[in-house]
Simulated assay, not measured.
Amino acid sequence: MMWNSPAEFFAMGGYALYVWWSFGICALVLVLEPLAVRARHKKIVNRLHKEVLATEFDQKAGK
């Protein structure tokens, strides 16, 4: 497909709304997914750390 002007390129042959929303949503997902994974990882590590501390406390209290 050839465009004669930047306006034609951004109009995408009448499909601009669909095309640019698709690009935007894809970019948003590509940004948010690593952030969500990092937050879940941090939450899991914190929970495991608390479980280890609780286990150590129970073992010391039992003696």
Rank of each mutant, 00 (worst) to 15 (best):
Met1Cys: 07
Met1Ala: 10
Met2Gln: 07
Met2Ile: 07
Met2Leu: 12
Met2Phe: 11
Asn4His: 10
Ser5Glu: 03
Ser5Lys: 01
Pro6Asn: 05
Pro6Ala: 04
Ala7Glu: 12
Ala7Gln: 09
Glu8Leu: 00
Glu8Met: 01
Glu8Lys: 01
Phe9Thr: 02
Phe9Tyr: 12
Phe9Val: 04
Phe9Pro: 01
Ala11Arg: 00
Ala11Gly: 03
Met12Thr: 00
Met12Cys: 13
Met12Asn: 02
Met12Lys: 03
Gly13Tyr: 00
Gly13Gln: 00
Gly14Tyr: 02
Gly14Thr: 01
Gly14Val: 02
Tyr15Trp: 11
Tyr15Ala: 15
Ala16Asn: 06
Ala16Lys: 02
Ala16His: 06
Leu17Pro: 01
Leu17Met: 12
Leu17Ala: 14
Leu17Cys: 11
Leu17Gln: 13
Tyr18Ala: 15
Tyr18Val: 09
Tyr18His: 13
Tyr18Leu: 15
Val19Met: 04
Trp20Val: 08
Trp20Gln: 05
Trp21Cys: 12
Trp21Ser: 15
Ser22Asn: 11
Ser22Glu: 06
Phe23Met: 15
Phe23Tyr: 15
Phe23Pro: 00
Phe23Glu: 05
Phe23Gln: 06
Gly24His: 04
Gly24Arg: 02
Gly24Ser: 11
Gly24Glu: 00
Ile25Leu: 15
Cys26Phe: 14
Cys26His: 14
Cys26Met: 15
Cys26Gly: 10
Ala27Thr: 01
Leu28Gly: 03
Leu28Asp: 01
Leu28Asn: 02
Val29Leu: 12
Val29Trp: 12
Val29Pro: 02
Val29Asn: 00
Val29Ala: 05
Leu30Asp: 04
Leu30Glu: 07
Val31Phe: 12
Val31Thr: 01
Val31Leu: 07
Leu32Glu: 02
Leu32Met: 14
Glu33Phe: 13
Glu33Asn: 08
Pro34Met: 03
Pro34Lys: 00
Leu35Ala: 09
Leu35Ser: 06
Leu35Pro: 02
Ala36Gln: 08
Ala36Trp: 08
Val37Ile: 15
Val37Trp: 11
Val37Phe: 06
Val37Arg: 14
Arg38Leu: 13
Arg38Phe: 10
Ala39Asn: 08
Ala39Val: 07
Arg40Leu: 14
Arg40Gln: 13
Arg40Ser: 14
Arg40Tyr: 12
Arg40Met: 13
His41Met: 09
His41Val: 06
His41Thr: 10
Lys42Ser: 11
Lys42Tyr: 06
Lys42Arg: 15
Lys43Trp: 05
Lys43Pro: 01
Lys43Val: 01
Lys43Ile: 01
Ile44His: 05
Ile44Ala: 14
Val45Lys: 05
Val45Ser: 07
Val45Tyr: 05
Val45Asp: 09
Val45Asn: 03
Val45Met: 11
Asn46Ala: 15
Asn46Thr: 03
Asn46Ile: 00
Asn46Cys: 07
Asn46Gln: 12
Arg47Lys: 15
Leu48Gln: 10
His49Trp: 08
His49Leu: 07
His49Arg: 12
Glu51Val: 08
Glu51Trp: 11
Glu51Met: 10
Val52Gln: 07
Val52Cys: 10
Leu53Phe: 08
Leu53Lys: 09
Leu53His: 08
Ala54Ser: 10
Ala54Pro: 02
Ala54Glu: 11
Thr55Gly: 04
Glu56Trp: 03
Glu56Ile: 06
Glu56Ala: 12
Phe57Ala: 10
Phe57Gly: 03
Asp58Glu: 11
Gln59Thr: 12
Gln59Ile: 13
Lys60Pro: 02
Lys60Arg: 14
Ala61Leu: 13
Ala61Pro: 00
Lys63Tyr: 10
Lys63Arg: 14
Lys63Ser: 09
Lys63Ile: 10
